[in-house]
Design a protein around this nucleic acid. Structure first.
Lengths: 208, 208
DNA sequence: TCATCCAGTTAACAACTGTTCTCTGGAATT
DNA sequence: AATTCCAGAGAACAGTTGTTAACTGGATGA
């Protein structure tokens, strides 16, 4: 299966990744719609025209960044939601997943939060699609849960969206708290835990 | 009390408002960090340098837009949360408030959603401050409610944040649905209603 | 009426932008 | 060994940007 790439292909992928990395770094302090093509190539150390060998436009690069940021997250989310056991434990696990991901990839999280409603349409749509996928996956897992027995399909999806939105809000809060003291992150954990707990309680009494 | 402004002051305010309006219109399809000073003055029909008579920078203009977008909303939110009566009715009222506001001021809502996590720090902070104010106000109203009797202060604030976040998410959904058919807006209303209903149920059983 | 103020203008600045076309040199293919 | 391919370079393009300085002319207040 493993096909060794030629020197040429390998180098091209390396350069492409360098573009993505440089762009992500520059996006720490501005949004995609103000990111210049020349700015990126300068950061990578290549001529401006080299950019076109890898991306059609900055928007195109942005879409690639969306995949890089969220693509690998699907199995993790799926697994976390699927975890059997105590509700309380599931909540703790979910929040830990988010906290760890934010700590490990802060720039990616910032990028997603920023461009979710940002000024570049194709990127906004790419993020929206990914989030819808998350919601669908969470919904599929929730549907298996005995706790949602007798629920309508629409209600399960509604709950799934609530979880996904909450995930994003929490990630954004962790990001803000990243450079502050650990105590601040602890406060975010506490608040997110209680919010999820309240949602869980609402879920348990939904059919009353 | 009412002091009639001189011709000069009045004209200045008019021009300033023209800047705000033009900027908001331009921000429909880009984010603030890519909005140019010359772009705005051109749209208003003035020389670039006239901008400096009213704002120190684009970021400064952005902060003014935040006040314009959210400043007048505080009493409305306060009043809606304070409404006594059926929970179900309160939920419907709240969602109606949001739907109406989005329909009446779509550009302002888009601006807030976009710049909440956007690339211009002072604007981001201005929005964050406003949202914190909303949370505090909602908290104050919730604390009066018999339904939160016996709750810790932190828990009431946690619930208030949940409501405020939900408000923003719903506004953003209404915005997306604005140009589509009425049916789409109806779907948003339904989903938001159920999500708020679930949160309310969670609230009612919080102390169990 | 006259001096002062100040919103908006004009001109110019160096620096930057995205995109085009042409060229080069090493990898890939035959 | 000869040919093709193609990532990246170089130069030039017409526009754009924010900011400065010195100005004009009508409203303002003495």
């Amino acid at each position: 299966m493993s096909h060794t790439l030629g020197i040429r292909q390998a180098q091209k992928q390396k350069t492409r990744q360098a573009f993505l990395d440089a762009a992500l770094a520059l996006l720490a302090e501005q949004s995609l719609s103000s990111l210049g093509l020349r700015e990126v190539t300068r950061a990578v150390g290549l001529a401006p025209t080299a950019f076109y060998r890898h991306f059609r436009s900055i928007a195109d690069l942005g879409v690639a960044l969306v995949d890089e940021a969220l693509g690998s997250l699907h199995p993790m989310v799926r697994e976390t939601v699927a975890t059997t056991g105590d509700s309380e434990e599931r909540i703790a696990r979910g929040i830990e997943l988010i906290a760890d991901y934010v700590a490990a990839h802060p720039a990616h999280v910032r990028f997603i939060a920023r461009e979710r409603n940002g000024g570049v349409q194709p990127v906004r749509r790419a993020i929206g699609d990914q989030l819808d996928r998350f919601a669908e996956e969470v919904k599929a897992e929730l549907a298996k849960d005995p706790q949602t027995e007798g629920w309508s399909d629409a209600d399960v999806l509604m709950l799934a969206h609530l979880y996904v939105d909450q995930m994003l809000i929490t990630a954004s809060l962790f990001l803000e708290a990243l450079e502050g003291p650990a105590e601040e992150r602890e406060r975010v954990t506490l608040r997110a835990t209680r919010q999820l707990r309240l949602i869980t309680i609402g879920r348990d009494h939904w059919l009353d």
